[in-house]
Design a binder for these strands. Structure first.
Length: 308
DNA sequence: AAATCGGGCAACCGCGCGCAG
DNA sequence: CCTGCGCGCGGTTGCCCGATT
């Protein structure tokens, strides 16, 4: 037996919302709040599905929403967070005050992913496309990963089996530094003399930015995040959900160099998420050995310095 | 000026999770 | 523990509108 529909679809209006419908919904929510969406249409005098009402409200009518274009800072934060979190749009949107997950998702799909491609970066793996192409050949001669693990890893993230230190990639030289999500092994800083080396499968997953940031090679993420950073104090006070990050003021103090700033930012994100109850989800995701192709001697969350 | 194409965005759909009974 | 229900999320669709032919 399937789940019954949330509303009588035959008597429910679909499609674009009219100004009158918006007004009714807004009037209702402003006096009654937003609880129990299934009853909202009836109470507000709308022939809409409750789900549709919720969506309209959260994506368009909700107070404090930004309707203007994304700023450069927001762009950079989205790119960085996407490198860390993947397509967890709601988590990303939480760090962008006034933006909805739908906003962020649409912006990513229509603008940012193209932008990254134009700059030679694969928007899914956040790695140089040239490296990905180069890796295809290497892939053929590498032993397959552990079967049980491989089936768990999203194909989109299990891409390249080998790469060079991004700092050496010539095509990156032309890129704005903050667009580059670097990857350096946490316990083995790359020296100029070092040759490109091969890594474990677990090194190719979404922890790149995190690992890089926490390994003290956080130039790129830090540059992108610096303006959002309010420091550990802000996080500790429970200013969360993007409020602290969003209330950027130029006098908010010095930004630490290196791992300190990046770590603080990550901690702040985690604190925010904790406050919102999503920290557990992220912690589990990061700790999940299967997610990172564990067993390959790879980077656990603790090894990455992820402060959970 | 009309037709076609493509991008951007709002909205919908289906699924998973959490909670209450 | 099981079931029903509401909510939220991510993926996808379809419409609108500007650009191009």
């Amino acid at each position: 037996m399937g789940r019954p529909p949330c509303c009588d679809k035959a008597n429910v209006k679909k499609g674009p919302w009219t100004a009158e419908e918006d007004a009714k919904l807004l009037a209702y929510t402003s006096t009654h709040g937003t609880g129990n969406w299934t009853s909202v249409p009836q109470r507000a005098g709308l022939k809409r599905c409750g789900k549709s009402c919720r969506l309209r409200y959260t994506n368009y009518l909700r107070p404090n929403l930004k309707h203007e274009n994304f700023t450069q800072e927001e762009e950079e934060l989205i790119v960085t967070l996407h490198a860390m979190l993947g397509s967890r749009w709601s988590l990303i949107a939480n760090q962008l005050p006034g933006r909805t997950d739908n906003d962020v998702k649409n912006y990513w799909n229509t603008k940012l992913s193209k932008k990254l491609r134009q700059r030679g970066i694969d928007p899914i793996t956040h790695r140089p496309i040239a490296d990905l192409m180069q890796s295809i050949g290497t892939l053929a001669i590498r032993p397959p990963p552990t079967a049980g693990v491989a089936s768990y890893v999203p194909a989109s993230q299990a891409a390249p089996p080998a790469f060079t230190a991004y700092h050496d990639a010539p095509y990156f030289a032309a890129l704005p530094q903050q667009q580059v999500v670097t990857k350096v092994e946490a316990d083995a800083p790359v020296s100029p003399e070092q040759k490109p080396h091969q890594l474990n499968w677990s090194d190719f997953l979404a922890d790149d930015a995190t690992g890089a940031a926490l390994a003290g090679h956080a130039d790129a993420p830090q540059a992108a995040l610096g303006q959002y950073q309010e420091g550990p104090a802000a996080a500790a006070t429970g200013i969360v959900g993007g409020r602290a990050f969003g209330d950027v003021d130029g006098a908010s103090g010095a930004v630490d160099d290196g791992a300190g700033a990046a770590s603080a930012f990550i901690d702040a994100i985690l604190d925010c998420d904790k406050e919102m109850g999503v920290d557990q989800l992220i912690a589990e995701m990061l700790a999940d050995p299967a997610y990172y192709g564990g067993g390959g001697g790879g980077s656990s969350s603790s090894e990455l310095g992820w402060g959970c």
